[in-house]
């Protein structure tokens, strides 16, 4: 019921942002996915990659060097700009404010993580509603499944990396168990899918792989 509503809602809205959650195997997965998106990709991309608390900002630099899109570690109160990729900094949650700016928080761990995918997804869903595309990639835990469910409940689109394609399959599987996912795809097809979605929202047939709510 909910999924039928949200499917049509997603078609009727222009997409406003992409939110990605990823853990184990993420450096490789993000390089591949972001590397295949052109500099003209029109949406902001918000990413939570689980990372140790005292990591430096090397990942943003690495991705920025290898991608056509601009990649940066999020600073508090960054304006969310199209065609820009924002990575949650180590040891901070990344959230979306209702005015379209980013916020950071040093709140306790959520889903055993800081930054937590659930925190990003839930706050982004509250602001972007049907205009949000949520993606869960490889990871060896359960973070992101509750958030992806919220994204669906607010009418957004859910994409999950095919567990068979993922370096660690738990996170994709947990997401698929938690909500009815719209697309289950391998990393190789994901950038193309995003571009199609953005060009013509709502016209691509969805997989039936996810569970119905």
């Amino acid at each position: 019921m909910d999924s039928v509503d949200s499917a049509s809602a997603a078609g009727a809205h222009a997409f406003r942002a992409v939110a990605i959650g990823v853990s184990t195997g993420g450096v490789h997965a993000l390089q591949k996915l972001l590397g295949e998106l052109p500099a003209t990709f029109p949406l902001p991309i918000l990413i939570v990659q689980h990372i140790s608390a005292d990591a430096d900002s090397g990942l943003a630099k690495l991705l920025n060097d290898r991608c056509a899109l601009r990649v940066k570690e999020a600073d508090e109160q960054d304006e969310i700009l199209p065609g820009t990729v924002y990575l949650a900094p180590p040891n901070y949650h990344l959230l979306v404010e209702c005015d379209g700016f980013l916020a950071l928080s040093a709140d306790p761990y959520v889903s055993f993580a800081r930054p937590s995918v659930d925190v990003l997804f839930e706050s982004a869903a509250a602001v972007f509603g049907p205009g949000l595309i949520g993606i869960v990639l490889t990871g060896a835990n359960f973070d992101g499944s509750r958030g992806l469910k919220t994204i669906k409940q607010r009418g957004g689109v859910a994409i999950v990396q095919d567990p068979a394609d993922a370096e660690a399959r738990q996170m994709p599987q947990a997401a698929m168990a938690a909500t009815r996912v719209d697309y289950v795809v391998a990393l190789a097809g994901m950038a193309a899918l995003l571009q199609q979605l953005v060009a013509r929202p709502g016209t691509i047939p969805r997989d039936k792989n996810g569970r119905d709510d």
Partner: peptide, 9 residues
Amino acid sequence: YADASIKRR
């Protein structure tokens, strides 16, 4: 207070 965090809390 920034709305996203206070709403969560």
